Simulated scan of single mutants.
Amino acid sequence: MTFSICVREPYRTDADERAYRFGVAVTTRLPGVGALCPFVGESGALAIQSHVDPDLGERALDYLDDGLAIDDVVAALLNADAPEQRRNRQIHGVDREDSVVVTGDSCVGAIGEYDGDHYTVAGNLLTDEAVVRETADAYEASAFGDRPLAERLIDALEAGHAAGGDKREALSVQSAAVTVVTTESTPYRRFYNDLRVDASETPIADLKRTYEGAMLGYEQMLSEYASAEDIEANRPE
Score class of each variant (00 low, 15 high):
58 E>W: 13
63 Y>T: 14
80 A>N: 02
177 A>C: 15
39 F>I: 10
117 D>K: 09
23 G>S: 00
145 G>C: 02
103 T>V: 12
110 A>N: 14
156 A>I: 05
29 R>E: 05
104 G>A: 14
121 V>T: 12
33 V>S: 09
143 A>K: 11
229 E>T: 01
89 R>C: 05
34 G>W: 01
113 E>S: 15
227 S>H: 03
145 G>R: 03
59 R>N: 05
33 V>C: 11
90 Q>A: 07
135 T>C: 11
69 A>T: 06
156 A>K: 06
155 D>E: 05
131 V>M: 09
144 F>L: 05
13 T>C: 12
204 I>A: 01
62 D>K: 14
237 E>Y: 00
139 Y>W: 13
215 M>L: 11
77 L>P: 10
229 E>N: 00
161 H>P: 07
78 L>G: 02
92 H>S: 00
75 A>D: 05
195 L>F: 11
217 G>D: 06
130 A>V: 13
69 A>W: 04
69 A>M: 05
203 P>C: 07
23 G>Q: 00
39 F>N: 08
194 D>C: 13
63 Y>S: 15
17 E>M: 14
201 E>H: 15
173 V>S: 13
9 E>N: 10
210 T>K: 15
36 L>F: 07
17 E>H: 15
231 I>A: 03
100 V>R: 08
171 L>P: 15
85 Q>R: 11
15 A>Y: 03
42 E>L: 09
223 S>T: 10
22 F>G: 05
53 D>P: 12
158 E>I: 00
224 E>P: 01
176 A>G: 02
219 E>H: 12
102 V>I: 15
79 N>W: 10
1 M>H: 07
124 N>M: 11
83 P>Y: 00
16 D>C: 08
214 A>C: 07
198 D>S: 02
82 A>R: 13
223 S>Y: 07
30 L>Q: 06
48 I>P: 08
19 A>W: 08
190 R>H: 08
11 Y>P: 12
134 E>L: 08
214 A>R: 05
160 G>H: 03
110 A>E: 14
82 A>H: 12
159 A>P: 04
65 D>Q: 11
